[in-house]
Design a protein around this nucleic acid. Structure first.
Lengths: 197, 197
DNA sequence: GAAAAAAAATGAACTAGTTTAAGACTTTTA
DNA sequence: TAAAAGTCTTAAACTAGTTCATTTTTTTTC
């Protein structure tokens, strides 16, 4: 069958871990919602219950919380071919503490909670897909949570730049500071220093 | 059937997410290895390939790395009814950077990589079990990786104490410092301050 | 149960990262 | 295309957390 580019990207993402028949592919696609957001639009805001988990087919978004002083802490940047959302709120149906905002015009495919549950009943292979997806994410978050605690800000910056060069060039230094966990002023110093070396 | 206490604990842990028939329970148990370690024994050391994922039926262990200066960074404490191991090395079969050491006499059930793979083929329901287990772990590591970056050491200590009071009372202050990401001296100051309040 | 080893407490001097403030540069909007 | 808003840089004074050194307390070992 002839799929849209966005659906092709998703099916290729899924086919890393499981093989689907034509019928299963069509069934899967029928469970998704297409979403488009402009730069600076919110995909969701703190206080809401996460309605969807998102696959990004185009663009870039930031997921962040605001602390008591109103300072942002970015927990992830998400670009094409990545998954994002607030998994905790999506699963528990409790209000989220996260904002998700597009840093560029972005296009996404969303799966609602009802369709996510239905997906496992209709195509049990997806248990395997998500088992492997979550396992891989878990491995990288375990590493990240250790590094956040044991590396200096400069080391965290260098590591991020090395791991995600495509992202560094698409975001502001200020947002990168909010991700690394430092002030924009100190981020500026680090970048000046690193460039001088 | 009449199961050992350790197997009962594991089966009850698994039954949170999936239901097994008697036959499946017996099959599952047949895939496990019983392991006992004394206080200060290593379950595994950096450089080795993680042979097992472990379920703890008794005791307490710490999972840690050593940095270039030889300073330990504890990534988790694991007690009864928790799972531990180095998931990354277990999956990729690359050498681990982690040490796992018993802080008390401990008893565990290990599943080898061959049996883990076999488990999914023999009892596909386990895809669901691990999908949910990893999903829940992922949610808590996402939170932890944000907190590691955005909270002060005192806030991280208070949060850990609140979330895991059973663990705080079983480990040394020094190990807690290596988990929180600070020096033992500063940990001592925080505790003195918090107790004074 | 005494000796040895490890953990905890305390304090002084230090460093990584913050705060505040001001000016230069870049992007967005009308 | 000018004005407004946001981002980046620099610098001085500050604070959270480190380092190093010493003493006290607790745990381990024989």
């Amino acid at each position: 069958m002839n799929y849209k580019e966005s659906h092709k990207l998703l099916l290729s993402n899924v086919s890393r871990f499981i093989n689907l028949t034509e019928l299963e592919k069509q069934k899967y696609i029928s469970l998704l919602t297409e979403i488009k957001v402009d730069k600076r639009d919110f995909l969701m805001q703190a206080g809401e219950i996460a309605k969807y988990e998102y696959f990004i087919t185009k663009g870039c978004l930031k997921v962040y919380t605001l602390d008591e002083e109103g300072a942002p802490h970015i927990s992830m940047f998400a670009i094409e071919d990545y998954w994002t959302g607030d998994l905790s709120s999506f699963m528990t149906k409790e209000p989220s503490r996260y904002f998700i905002k597009a840093t560029e015009h972005s296009e996404l495919l969303g799966i609602s909670r009802e369709n996510y549950d239905l997906l496992f009943r209709e195509i049990p292979k997806f248990e395997r897909f998500y088992r492997i997806l979550y396992q891989k994410s878990l491995i990288s978050y375990i590493r990240r949570s250790n590094h956040g605690i044991s590396l200096t800000a400069e080391e965290r910056y260098l590591e991020f730049k090395k791991k995600y060069p495509q992202i560094v060039s698409r975001i502001t230094q200020k947002d990168l500071a909010a991700y690394i966990g430092i002030t924009p002023e100190f981020m500026s110093k680090i970048i000046t220093k690193v460039n001088r070396m």
